[in-house]
Structure formats: structure tokens, C-alpha cells
Design a protein around this nucleic acid. Sequence first.
RNA 1: GCCCGAGUAGCUCAGUCGGCAGAGCAGCUGUCUUGUAAACAGCAGGUCGCAGGUUCAAUUCCUGUCUCGGGCUCCA
Length: 666
Amino acid sequence: MAEINVTLPDGSTRVIPLGATAGDLAADIGPGLAKAALIATVDDAEVDLSVPLADGQQVSIITADSDAGLETLRHSTAHVLAQAVLELYPGATYAVGPPIQDGFYYDFDLPDGATISDDDLEAIEARMGEIIEADQPFERHEVSAAEGLDLFADHPYKREIIETVALAAEADGASQPGDESASELADEVAGDGQISYYRNSDTFIDLCRGPHVPSTGRLGHFKLMSVAGAYWRRDAGRPSLQRIYGTAWGSRKDLAAHLHRLAEAEKRDHRRLARELDLLSWPAELGPGLAVWHPKGALVRRIIEEYSQSSHDNGGYQSVITPHIARSELWATSGHLDFYEESMYPPMELDGASYHLKPMNCPFHVLIYKSSQRSYRDLPLRLFELGTVYRYELSGAVHGLMRSRGFTQDDSHIFVTREDATAEISALVGFVLTVLRAFGFEEFEARLATRPEGKSVGDDAEWDLATEALAQAMWVSRLEYKIDEGGGAFYGPKIDIDVRDAIGRSWQLSTIQVDFQLPERFDLEYVGPDGQRHRPVMIHRALMGAIERFFGVLLEHCGGALPAWLSPVQAAILPVAASHEDYATYVEARLSESGFRVEVHGAHEPLGRRIRKAKLQKLPYVLVVGDDDRANGTVGVNARGSDGDERGVLLGDFSNRLSDDVHTHR
RNA sequence: GCCCGAGUAGCUCAGUCGGCAGAGCAGCUGUCUUGUAAACAGCAGGUCGCAGGUUCAAUUCCUGUCUCGGGCUCCA
């Protein structure tokens, strides 16, 4: 019998019979692998396990331990979801169902505008369970586009996918540039005039490029999470579909861990913590996305802002203050009305003039630059402002502090010569990271956002130059980055910096944007050493982004347990009995004199109850004082995060310890 | 803005197949005087988001509207 050689990932070769499939290879390597195998990669292409191997191929068996394996598992689970929904809702049709972070979704269009509610998910899950139990094979088939149109005659969205991809293939095998939707759909099927589909029962087929797990029996550790609306092909003008989200994992344990992470994230929700810790609230009377800051929240915010202010004072910035509205002409000149109007509040007509609330601070800072003739000796000129801006966010988009209609940026505009721009940006990247680290963020990810086609101004050469300057700055700062194609602002490319929080989520905070356009539009100049007038470059940047949002991210990052330097109350002092209240007051006075934020919780309630209350407020320290302490000038220290308590700590020692925490930002 | 869902006491939630609205926690008062995560008792607290409609009667059914949540789109 003929045999072939294939190479495994470890470099070893293996002899298998001619005609053996990837699945056979897995079984040949071991029963454990055969059971875990989901798909294979053959010469870097992902394929079904049923694909026969050829001599000399590089083969790797993929399990749920890898990202590729998990993606396949999720993709296949999405197919099972589609099968269940099509069975349970006669007349329903299906659109697309890709794997996503941690799971998958599938979009459906139900007959007569029927809808799926969260309560229906259980029944759908149960049907999915039966399909998985039946261990149906995923069989791949390839047919021509014409045959495909026939097969999916009753499913208009599938037909549209086939047509779109077939058309794109005709137009020289590539999707049109700028047509993201077409290239997304291309993921659904092979794009070579042939289309592929998978059959996993007599009654269910789905258009799909694959690969898939060998059979539905490989699936099972999944859960349907939610129902939502979603536009067909991301187009608000097209029908809204019912999207079902699910999560799927390789093992029961992984699924449980994921659900646990979600529960943890919910506990950290800044809206919940803000209420529990009495930091701020969102009275419905104010309107969507508008919060009021309670005393403790305002105190924390003030500390954050003071830190920001002093960092900038020490970093070569000059503070400025600008108004919240300006004549509409200013926004016409700046270009905001051309490119940003739908996100701006509508104009106010006053005394025959039109005014707009500011969505950004830049034009004001530009006018400060223009207020006098500038020399190259003045540059770089760094203007800083905690500037409050107003943006008309879609009502469905507002979300606690994370997305609101008015917010304060730690905003700066740096005016610099072209020659110095790259060096300035490099220094900026360092400055950004230093400030973010001060708040306990350790992991960063950067993105370089390039020109948004059709929604931008300026010529290509300037965009290229600016983009290059940003890339170079990151290279110099050794900050790794990804490219965000077309993600730039209308006036220039930008670097966005994300932080990773304590439970692994990432949040975009900082942005650094290069701008050749505003200096042009406002005719900015400086006199160079050659006595000639030159055009400066402008750099827009925010470190925390919006203070409100930063506060929210920080709160979720620390789960409400703010580090001592930020905590609105750093220590609660609990007298054991009423007779110790005088000593508690003495301790309070001593610590207050040292500049700490402390409060006495009088002995009206049992000690255990007061300790519990203080703990629930997540205070850095709870101090208990009784007879021994009064006699010896000590306190009982119960630190946040520690198991027990320490008795008889000298007041001075505690004071030093707290002082140390504050100075090291612990 | 669009799709789906939800609004009951300060908070978390129960309940009413249309017939005077409930719990726990928090709050207040009193008693207890406490050494490291919940003392005891009592009191008070809601035109059941708002406005219309249907009905003898609406918190419950219908319509509209506002706010919130999850998504889409957008984005700091």
C-alpha cells in the first residue's frame, strides 16, 4: 500500500497511508489528540479533518487549546444555533454568523416581524443541545455560484452574499477597496467562483467557507447570552435583524471561568460602584448621560485633576482657560461643521449671530497662538486645559461615565516646527505612559490610525509625513502598535493608546494626533531663524482622554478599592466603646493634621457592624482604638486586603505607613 | 437615531390571570456600650417612570412618551 510523508509542527515526519485524512493522522498520533482534534492546518491553510493529505505537506492538528481551534468551535456552534432557530421558527431566514471574541453571534430575520426575547433563549439552547447530542457530521460541499443561488433560493441574505462575492470575484478577484462589507462577506465563502456550503443534516445546510469541527458532538460548552438588533451589512438604511449572541469554549471549566469573569466584571461596573460608594449618580431628571458628582466622587475627581495639572506644570505646559461656546464661523473655519456637525449640538441664534457649543478645544487654543506673533524661540508652545466639551452622542450610545454628552478632556495642543515634531511626539509618548502608570495601569497597546478616505482634508503627502512621524515616535519609544486603517481624525492621523485593566479588558484612553490642517486653515505662522514666516505643526493630545471616562475606567480597574492617594476616606477610626471616643477624636486630629482624610465612626453600633460597613466602603484602613491603645498611644490596624488585624501599632508608625502609601500611589 | 428588553420604597427585588401594594438592606427613634465583616425592638418610607385610552374599577390591559440596560451605528 502506498504511503506518504507529512511533517508535524515539531519538525518530525510521519509516514501515513496514501489517502489518509488529517483526522486519520490525529488518530495515528494518539487517541487523546483524535478526540480533541477540531481542524487541521495544512501548509498554513485551515482545513477540515476530513481532507486527505498529500506527500510532503506540513500538517498541524488544531484543538480548542489554540485561538484557531476556539474560533472554529465557536463558528460551528453558531451554525448549530442557526439550525435550531430555523427549526423552531418556521419561515425564519439567516444572514451571517461569525465567531467573535469569547463567542459568536448569528443574525436572523424572522417571518412577520416576529422577535426573539431573552426568555426564548432557553428553548433555543435546548434544541441546540439535541443537535449536539445527535452528533451530526459537518459535510463540506462545493458548487458553482449559480447552483448556490439555487440551493439558497428561499434565503435572500445568503443569495446576496453569494452575489456580492461572485461579483467581487469577477472584478479581478478582489473586493472593491473601501467596500468593507464585501470583504467581510468574503469570509463567508470561498471567492473563486465556487461557493462552499456545509450540510449537517437532511434539513440544514449553511453557506460557509469553513472549516468546521468534524461533527456537532465536538461542541457543547456554550451558552446563549443575549438578543440584540443589528443592521444587515452594518447599514442603518437596511433591515434590522435579530442577533443572538453566545459564548462557547472547549471545556466546561473554560465556560465556567468565562461566566465567572463576566460576573466579576458586573461587580466592577462603575455605575454600580458609584452608587454603592456614594460617588455620583445619574438623576433621570437631568437627561441621558448626565451625572452629578457627590462630595466623595468630586473629591476623588479633584485629586485626579490636581495630579494632571501638576504633571503638566512640570512637563513644560502652560495652562489656559477657554469658553464653552463660540460663533459658528469659528467652527466653519476649523472644519468641524464640515466633518463633525452631526456630533455637535445644534446652533443657538443670539443677537443675530449663531453660536455652537464646543465639541473640541482646539480652535480656542489656536486663537491663543494667533494672539501674538510667534518666533521659533517660542516653540514648542504647549497649551494645556482641562477643557469641557459637548458632543451630541446618539441616545443609544450613552453609557454611564464611559460615554456622555458633556465631558472634560485633559487636552493639550502643542505648536511645533516640522523639524521638531517627531522628537516632540516621542517625548509625548513617554509623558503619557508616565501619567497612566501613576494610576496603576501597567499594560499598554497602541494603534496608529491612518487617513479616513472621504472624511478628511489635506493632501496625501502631508498625511504620509504625519503618519510617518507618529510611527517613528513609537519606534523610538519602543511602543508596539497595530495599524488602524482609516481610523484617523478628519485633520490628521493619530496614535491611540489603550490600557489593559486588572481583569484583562482594554480601554482606549490616550490619543496623540498630528495636524497640518488647522495651522493651514487658521493661517498660523512663526518667524524662523532665517527671518522667514513658516507654518507650525499642531499636535492634539489627551492622556486620560475624558476625566469622567478615566474615572470610570479607574474605578472598574480597582473594583472600587481606590488606592490610598485617591481614596476619599483613607482611614475610618472606630472607638471600641463610647468611652474611647475622646481618644478616637485625638487620633483623628493627629491624622488630619498630617493631611490625611479620616473619619470617626462613633460607638452607637456594635464594633463588628461598623467594621463591616467600613469594609464595604472599601477603605484602605480601618483603625480600632480601645483601652490598650489609649494607654499606649497606639491603634489597631485593619488594612484592606489583609486577612487579620495588627494590634498595638504606634500612631506615628501608622501615619508613616499611610504617608508612604500616598507617596507611592499604592 | 435604529433593534430587543426593563422601569414597583434610597438600594436589591417579590407581587398583582384588573379589586385598598410586600420583603431584606439602608434611614429614623429607643434600648444595648461593644476589641476586628451584620445586637434587639419599634417607626417611617411608594398616586407601582410619566401622560392619555379601555373599564364600575388600571400598578396590572392598550397607545404614546421619558429614563435605564444589552446590541447596531458612532466614538473620548
